[in-house]
């Protein structure tokens, strides 16, 4: 808990430092607020977990005549978020807050030849606060390409629920992993003006990093598992420029 608070305090200080210039009255640079929406594939890298379960189910089906398996689909997930940006000459400072969760849980099942069914349901979400420092390649007023990178504060959650885990030789009906940790990202974006104050953006964020092994807060404390946040986020957005 103390560690989490420290991370929050550090991030708040970092953000305050980044945003402070925007609140001063030097009138150099531009400040904007924006809304983003987009998509990501397999948030929290759950495709690797899904692959493990799908593989185990298919092998079970192969080695037990009469068994049935329905594989779990790897989900695409919508992403929504807000961002604040400060642009100073060729530099961009961006602070975002993004939330991603698949619209539907990923489900699959394996059924024994005797008819015992193990339904597997995997749910996940990710909150992320990326703080980006980037370089802008301007073309016209507020028409830019930009590239950057920085740290990301992640809150990641994965829950794996099963009816009859013994079918796959497992013991826990429920495995839950949740953690707050710092990782990093790269960003590539483009911005085009709509009006004098509004712009639209297209951004790609490539996330990297993983948590330390996390306690299982499901049925038992084990197995411990790290959450890997490596993945890609596509964001389209609208930004509003505030005169300062």
């Amino acid at each position: 808990m103390k560690k989490t608070l420290k991370i929050y305090a550090f991030t708040a200080a970092l953000l305050a430092g980044m945003l402070l210039p925007a609140s001063t009255a030097f009138a150099i640079g531009e400040f904007s607020l924006g809304f983003n929406a987009g998509i990501t594939y397999a948030p929290n890298n759950i495709d690797s977990i899904i692959t493990q379960y799908n593989g185990a189910m298919e092998i079970y089906k192969q080695t037990n005549a009469g068994a049935k398996a329905t594989q779990i689909d790897v989900p695409y997930a919508p992403v929504v978020g807000v961002n604040a940006r400060y642009q100073f000459n060729f530099f961009l400072f961006r602070l975002g807050c993004h939330y991603s969760r698949p619209l539907f849980s990923s489900k699959g099942s394996v059924t024994t030849p005797g008819g015992v069914k193990n339904s597997i349901k995997i749910s996940t979400y990710q909150n992320s606060i990326p703080a980006t420092i980037g370089i802008i390649m301007p073309l016209r007023k507020r028409t830019y390409f930009y590239i950057g990178g920085g740290g990301t504060l992640h809150q990641a959650y994965i829950k794996i629920k099963q009816d009859n885990p013994a079918v796959l030789g497992l013991t826990n009906n429920e495995d839950v992993y949740s953690g707050v940790f710092v990782a990093y990202h790269l960003m590539l974006g483009a911005e085009v003006p709509l009006t004098r104050k509004y712009t639209i953006t297209a951004e790609w964020i490539h996330q990297m990093g993983r948590s330390l092994p996390l306690d299982n807060s499901g049925d038992t404390a084990t197995p411990r598992k790290a959450i890997n946040v490596q993945g890609d986020i596509l964001l389209f957005g609208v930004n509003y420029y505030i005169h300062i």
Binding site: L139, G189, V192, W204, L234
Partner: peptide
Amino acid sequence: VGLCIPFWKDVKISFSC
């Protein structure tokens, strides 16, 4: 789909997803 930005008269750079 994405954005395409012309640079000068003979260059275009596009970013799409």
